[in-house]
Structure formats: C-alpha cells, structure tokens
Write a protein that binds this DNA or RNA. Structure first.
Lengths: 138, 138
DNA sequence: TCAATAAATGCACTTCTGTTGCACTATTAA
DNA sequence: TTAATAGTGCAACAGAAGTGCATTTATTGA
C-alpha cells in the first residue's frame, strides 16, 4: 500500500484509482487548483466525479477550499503546515495578478483581527494579491 | 441639482434617472448588495443596465466590489470612511453566516501583512465570517 | 433649432461554474 | 454468492456573469 493510499484511508476515504490520481495531481501542483484545472488534466474523467472527489476530500479534511477572489473555488492539499483538522485554517493565500496562480503561504498565519462589539468572528479569510516570486523576476 | 447628482458628476458619471435611483438604493442599504438584490428592488429595470451601472460605478470609484466568499459579487458605496480613491481599500468586511449580510467595517483597517521575499503585495482582501451584531442578539 | 454624434438602456443570447438526479458499476460485508 | 453500499458516468439544470446589437435618450455643434 502506497503512502497516498495510507493517507486517504487515514481520512476515512476509500483509495480508489481516481482519487489516488487526483491526490497525486494536487500533490504535484504546489498551487491551489480549480475544478477546471483538474478537468483539463484528466480529460477522460467526468467533471462530476472530480467535483465530488474534491467535495469528499474537503469534507474529510484532505484539502481545503480557497476563495481567492477570482470567483472560482480552488483547492489545495492540507499539508504538514496546515492545521485545518484541528483549528481554523488560518494561513493566508497569495493570488498573483500576473500568472493568476494562487499559493498557500502556510507559514504565514493570519494576525488576530478585532471586530466591533456584538460581532462574533468564526472564520477569517485573507487573500493578498500582487506579484508572486516567480513573476517578480527573482 | 441634488447632492447625489453632484456626487455622480464629481466622479465623471452622468446622473441619469436610473443611476440616481441605484445610488439612492445603495445609500439606503447599509450593507453590501449583490446584483440580484438590486434586480429585486428594481423589478422594472433590465439586469444588464443594473450590471453595467455597477461596473461604471466601480470604475469611477463610486462603489467598491466586495468578495465575501459567497461566490457572489457584492457592492457597497465608498463613503467618507472609505478611501478607495486615494489608496487601496484596506478596511475589512464582515459576512454574517446567519443573516447572510455583508457589511463594511470601514473603521477597522487591515493590519500590515508580511509576505515572503519575492512576493509583492498590491492589495489585501480580508473577510471575517461569523455572527453580526444584529444576529448575535445584543 | 435641428441634425449628427455619443452615451445609456433594453433584449436576447452565450458561457462558465457549480450542482443534482438517476442509472450503472465496482467494492465490501454477511 | 448475494445483498448492501460506495463510487462513477451521463444528462440536465441553476445562477451569475458577460457580450452583441438594436433602440432610445441625451449632448453637442453647425
């Protein structure tokens, strides 16, 4: 049994061929990917299957969904630096206005945000937009 | 000439009847509104007109677009507390998971966010989700 | 003032993302 | 081996966003 299969089973997800492939794909891409991206990569697979696989992964805390402000949901593997399972996903995301890619800055935690009296904060989403390291030319 | 007409002209937007109405509507609602909301409010008007009016307003810095994570673009008037015109729109937004409304917390500025070397930050979007003052029952 | 021009609006589509229902297939457990 | 369950594929739909074009309204300049 491979590493990936173990990981999936640890999250109560049956390691089907499709799921292993999708997991691999997510692991290879360092960036957050949209459903459409996976669709292109797996031209043979059904969009519905990919869609539901992502939903399953999300539910089982294998990936986290990212809203980077483009209006398209993206997903990225929860890795060592990501503690989605225990606490809120509090790292920030960076969206590059040039290459249009979104990356998790797992080591950059979101600072404490104060809200006015009467407001109860349950979750924080922070997306920084700009130029990523690859595009800034260094 | 009314106050609203002046405001529109100050932003190089011709104050047509439709635009004045939409501006009024936005001013009355304290919360960020989606295109659909306006559509309901102005059942007689065409969606395209509303859509393009919002785009015009956005371009001319009369409103700012808000991505609150619901996947639906919302818009709110840039008011005194909002300095979209001069600098980045750095106030945060609060989305209530109960009533589903999104408000600008104009007085709450986004703290300085550090990004790794090579990344250039141009803009920051911060959305706090939780329960708003009206729904938290106080 | 009135025609020429430009801006705004209305209507009909299209596209894209996300989502669901249902049938079929593969897998698991009794 | 068979019944139950989980996963996959196909088809279709919903909602938001966006575009092209014709028509109306407003502005400008002769």
């Amino acid at each position: 049994m491979t590493e990936i299969e173990k990981t999936l089973e640890n999250h109560q997800v049956r390691p089907t061929a499709m799921r292993i492939l999708i997991y691999k794909y997510l692991a290879e891409k360092k960036i957050a990917v949209a459903l459409t991206d996976i669709e292109y990569a797996f031209a043979k697979a059904e969009r519905t299957t990919l869609y539901r696989t992502l939903k399953t992964f999300e539910e089982k805390k294998i990936v986290h969904q990212i809203d980077d402000g483009t209006g398209i949901s993206k997903y990225a593997l929860c890795e060592s630096g990501c503690n989605c399972e225990i606490e809120q996903d509090l790292h920030l995301h960076f969206h590059c206005n040039n290459c249009n890619e979104t990356v998790c800055l797992t080591e950059h935690k979101i600072p404490q945000i104060k809200v006015p009296d009467g407001f109860v904060s349950e979750n924080v989403n922070l997306v920084v937009k700009g130029i990523c390291d690859k595009c800034s030319g260094q």
